[in-house]
Amino acid sequence: MVLITVRLPRGATLDMALRELRLKKEEVDVGYGVVAIDPDHGLYGLRVSAMAAHRLTATPEAMDGPWADPKIEPMGPPGKDR
């Protein structure tokens, strides 16, 4: 699954995203859902299969990404290197 961003109306749901983007449920990380990044400007994030992302890139106005989704870790405690 890869992270993409899409423009959807305010209050968008996963079903709405599936419909707008013509995605099947199995192509989407349903547990992750649709994440409101900037609801005031209709920007949402979701995780989709690499195949689906590739298909969506054919219509670049539909989505942005894939975006890096790097591993994150606690900053501490720092190691003992000096």
């Binding site: 992270l3 992750y32 990044i37 994030g45 995780r47 989704d69």
Partner: peptide, 13 residues
Amino acid sequence: GSALDGLLSDAMA
């Protein structure tokens, strides 16, 4: 462990 399947998306959620 790769650029595309990490944890930052969870922080975004």
